[in-house]
Design a protein around this nucleic acid. Structure first.
Lengths: 342, 342
DNA sequence: CTGAAAGCGCTTACAG
DNA sequence: CTGAAAGCGCTTACAG
C-alpha cells in the first residue's frame, strides 16, 4: 500500500508540508524552517507571509522528519517500573508525574508515561526508549536490581532515577528525599514525647525507602529488640497485617514509626480492631505527608517529602544530563509535620 | 552543535545504522531492511549473516527514519482528558489502561499515556498527537463538549472514545457498557427486594454515565419525586455529601441506586454516620464492580462493567479504523452482582 | 536576509 | 533473491 493509498484508506487528508507553506508564502523552504525555529534572520515581511501561510495551510511540523535531522525527539519518558496497581494506589506518583510534566512543558518537552510492571513490559519499554523515541528518561523504580537501569545505561540513554538506586548510587543520577534523616526526625520526636517502646514497620528491604528509613530508626534507638522491626510492602493492607504482628510480638509497644502514610493508615485500622487508642495507647508516625495523612482519623503525624522540589530537581538534572553534564545526586531535606496520631 | 558534537557532549556512542549492519554482513542495505521487515525474499545465508551482524553491532532501528517513509509511528496515544486526580482515584482507568496496553502489544503497537487534565494540557496534547507522533488515539473523556475531540476530528486522526460521547455519538467511534440497561437491572432488583422509596445519586449530567444511568432509573420508576434525585461528581466524598442531602430531603427512603461504586462507598459512610443500617434500613446499589465493591463493609451489590471486553473492543475498533473502516459504536452488556449492601 | 543543496536513516518499487 | 536508487520531510551550513 503506497502512502497516498493509505491516506485514502484512512480518509486522512494529506498533510501539508513545508514546501506547501513555502509555495503559499512565496519563499523558500529554508525560510519557512527558520521561522519555525525561532524566526532569526528573517525579514519582517517574510515572517508575516510565512505565518499567514502556516495558518492558511494548517501546517504542523512532521516530528519524525525533524527528529531525523536534529537527532532529538524533544520528548522524555517517565518510566514507572512498578506493578501497575502500585501506581494507582500511591498518590505520590500522581504529584511527581504532574510536577515533571509541568516542569518539562516549560522547556517544550513532552513527557510520555510508560508503565513497565512486568518483565515483559520492561523489555518492550527498553526497546522503545532506545529506538530514538525519547531523548532521556525519568525512572521511578524503587526496587533494587531492576534490569531496566542496566539497559538504559548500556544504551547510553541519559536518565535520572527517583530515590536512591540501591547498589548503584555511585554511577547513576538520582534525586531523593533524605529518608534516613527524616526517619531520625520522626523517631526522635516520638522519644521526646515520652514513648519508651518504639516499633517500626519498614518498607521492602530492597528499596532505599525501606533500608534508609530503617537506618534512621536505628540511628536514634541503636540495636533494638528484633521483634520491634517488621517489614511490609507499602500497601494499606500490608501495614495492617504488620501492625497486627507487632501487637502479637510486642504487646507493650507504645509507639510505631511506619515507613509510609498508606501503611500507617492500615496500621491505625489494625490498632483500632485490637482496641488500642491512637495516640493515647500507641503513637503512630508516618512518612510521606501524602493526601491521606490529613484526611485519616486521627490525622497523621508524619514526615513531609518535598514533592514539588523532587520533580523540579529530577527535571533539572535530566536537562543538564542532556546537555552533557556528568552524573549527580541530589538529596532534599524533609520536614516533621505534627498532627494528631503522635 | 553538530550531531557528532552532541554525541560527544552526551557521551553517547554513535548508534549503528543499517549501513553499518550491511557492511558487517556483506550485503546491501536493502537486504538488511528486508530482514528487519519479516525476512521475506531473503536467502538463508543472507538472513543468518544479517542477524549476526545485527547482534554484533547492537543495531536498533531508528524509528524516526522508518516512520518518515512508512508514514506510521506504530504507536497510539491513550489520552486521559480528565483532571489528573481522577485517574488516580478511579481503579477503572487502571484496568482499562492495562487491557489496552496488552491488547496493543500483541500487534506490536506501543501505547503512550498522555494526561490532559487542564485546557492547556489539551492544547499541548492536541499538537503532539497531530504532529505525527501517533497513528491514532484512545480517548477517555466522559465530559461533554471536550474541545479535544474536535481537534482530533479536524486533524483527521483516527480515534475511539470510551463511553458514549454526549452529543456526538453519531460521528465518533466509541465503546461503552450498557449504562442505561445496567441501571434498569439494578433498580428493578431493588424493587424486587420490596424497596418502596428508591433514591438515586447520579454522576455529572454532562457525562453519559450520568445521564444514561439516570435514564435507566427512570425507565423503571417513571417520573419520581424530584427530591429523590441528587447529582454528585463520582468521588467518594461527593457520594457522602449527596447521601447526606438525600437523608435530609427524603428521610423515609429505603434504597438508593448510586451511579458509581466509589460514590456508593461514600454514601454508606454517610448512612453509618446518620445511624442507618445497610442494607437493613437502606439498601445501596452501586455501579462498576470496581475493586472497592468487594472490600467495602458491607460488600457492594453492584453492576459489573465488562472491563476486559471494553478495552479489547476499543483496540479492535481503533485498528479497524487505522485500516480504513468507518465509524462504529459498540455497546456491551452489564451484569448484576449481588453481595451484601442490597 | 535568502535560496540551493546536502544529508539525516530508513523503505520500497524497479530492474536484473 | 539482490542491489542501486529514489524519496519520505525536515534542518543547516554555505554561498551570496
Amino acid at each position: 500500500m503506497t502512502a497516498p493509498e493509505r491516506n485514502r484508506a484512512r480518509r486522512v487528508r494529506p498533510r501539508p508540508t513545508m514546501d506547501d507553506v513555502a509555495a503559499v508564502a512565496g519563499v523558500s523552504r529554508g525560510t519557512v524552517s527558520r521561522v519555525l525555529n525561532g524566526g532569526h534572520n528573517v525579514s519582517g515581511p517574510a515572517l508575516d507571509a510565512v505565518r499567514r501561510a502556516i495558518r492558511k495551510t494548517g501546517y504542523v511540523v512532521n516530528q519524525h522528519a525533524r527528529s531525523l535531522v536534529t537527532q532529538r525527539s524533544d520528548s522524555v519518558a517517565f518510566i514507572l517500573s512498578e506493578p501497575q496497581d502500585r501506581l494507582f494506589e500511591d498518590p505520590n506518583f500522581n504529584i511527581l508525574l504532574r510536577g515533571c510534566t509541568q516542569e518539562l512543558a516549560e522547556h517544550d518537552i513532552t513527557l510520555l508515561l510508560t508503565i513497565a510492571g512486568t518483565s515483559e513490559d520492561r523489555k518492550r519499554v527498553g526497546r522503545y526508549v532506545t529506538a530514538g523515541h525519547v531523548d532521556g528518561a525519568l525512572v521511578i523504580s524503587s526496587h533494587a536490581g531492576s534490569p531496566l537501569l542496566d539497559d538504559l545505561e548500556a544504551r547510553g540513554l541519559p536518565f535520572v532515577a527517583c530515590g536512591r538506586p540501591l547498589g548503584r548510587d555511585r554511577n547513576v543520577s538520582y534525586v531523593a528525599a533524605d529518608d534516613r534523616g527524616g526517619a531520625r526526625q520522626m523517631v526522635s520526636y516520638l522519644r521526646s514525647q515520652g514513648r519508651q517502646r518504639i516499633a517500626t514497620i519498614t518498607g521492602p528491604l530492597d528499596t532505599s525507602g525501606g533500608v534508609d528509613r530503617l537506618a534512621g530508626y536505628r540511628d536514634v534507638l541503636g540495636e533494638v529488640d528484633p521483634r520491634l522491626v517488621v517489614t511490609a510492602d507499602y500497601s494499606h493492607d500490608g501495614g495492617a497485617e504488620a501492625m497486627a504482628r507487632l501487637l502479637r510480638q510486642v504487646p507493650d509497644l507504645d509507639a510505631v514509626f511506619v515507613a509510609s502514610d498508606l501503611m500507617a493508615v492500615g496500621a491505625i485500622a489494625a490498632l483500632h480492631r485490637a482496641g488500642r487508642r491512637v495516640p493515647d495507647d500507641v503513637a503512630v508516625g508516618g512518612f510521606d505527608d501524602s493526601k491521606v495523612a490529613s484526611t485519616s482519623v486521627p490525622r497523621l503525624t508524619t514526615i513531609r517529602q518535598p514533592w514539588p522540589r523532587l520533580s523540579a530537581e529530577m527535571v533539572r538534572l535530566l536537562l543538564n544530563h542532556l546537555a552533557g553534564d556528568a552524573h549527580a545526586a541530589v538529596i532534599l531535606p524533609t520536614e516533621l509535620v505534627v498532627r494528631d496520631s503522635a
